[in-house]
Amino acid sequence: TGIAFREARNHFEAQAARDDCVEVAGHLATIAASMTKIANDIRLLGSGPRSGIAEISLPSTQPGSSIMPGKVNPVMSEMLVQVSMYVMGLSNMVVMGGRDGHFELNVTIPLIAYALHESIHCLSTGARTFTERCIASIEPNKERCKELVDRSLMLVTALNPHIGYDKAAQVAKTAFASNKTLREVVLEQGLLDEKTLDAALDPMDMVHPKA
């Protein structure tokens, strides 16, 4: 196999306790938790197309929905979440197996070995499938992203140096109440000229660190 196996230095400890396996199971559960978050974030970012976030378009790996023609279900995200749940359950199995070693013998070693091998196999297969059938084909919805940024009220912070905190707060409240953008409200109230306003609300200028 090319793996540098070595004999345990303490045979009594190796037979009685499987703390090393419990630790490995914990790492696998951590990976599973991280994969769950990634899968759920992608599923939510792809929700839509009209009533969700819809910042990205997910690949159509399944032909529609059983009740909604044309719908793209986030099946790859759902797959990875279920794989992660399974691995977390297997991790708990290893913990219980490590706990139930009595004196100089742990009779649950076969169960521990199965759970670890199964976890590694499922995580690696799930991650590879998710990458190939989902991640690699994700497309950004640039127009939708721009729309969300333009209508975001958090950009009001950038107006503080130009019109002051109190006026900026009032602009945000007015924009929210009237369902308008910050830009529309500022121009309507004549608080800034168009050129200065565009420079102040430029989101690309906000993502670069300044000295």
Rank of each mutant, 00 (worst) to 15 (best):
E55Q: 11
H121L: 08
K71E: 03
I3D: 03
I53Q: 01
D100E: 06
A16I: 11
F103N: 09
Q170H: 03
E188L: 05
N106H: 13
P203A: 01
H117T: 11
S65V: 01
S84L: 03
S124D: 14
E194T: 12
F103C: 03
L45W: 08
K37C: 06
I120Q: 01
G89L: 11
S65F: 02
A158G: 13
V107W: 08
A199N: 12
G52E: 10
T1W: 05
A14C: 11
I53Y: 02
G101Q: 08
H208S: 04
S47P: 08
I56V: 14
C21N: 02
E118C: 09
S57W: 06
R18A: 11
V83C: 09
G70W: 05
I163K: 10
D20V: 12
L80G: 02
L105Q: 05
D202W: 07
I120S: 07
I31V: 13
R133Y: 04
L201S: 01
S91F: 05
L44Y: 10
L192P: 10
L201V: 02
E118V: 09
L123K: 04
S91M: 08
A200V: 13
S178N: 11
L58C: 05
V171A: 09
A32V: 13
A16V: 11
C134F: 02
R43V: 14
A8W: 05
I31N: 00
R18M: 11
S57I: 05
P203Y: 04
D193L: 07
E194V: 08
E194Q: 13
S65W: 05
T131R: 02
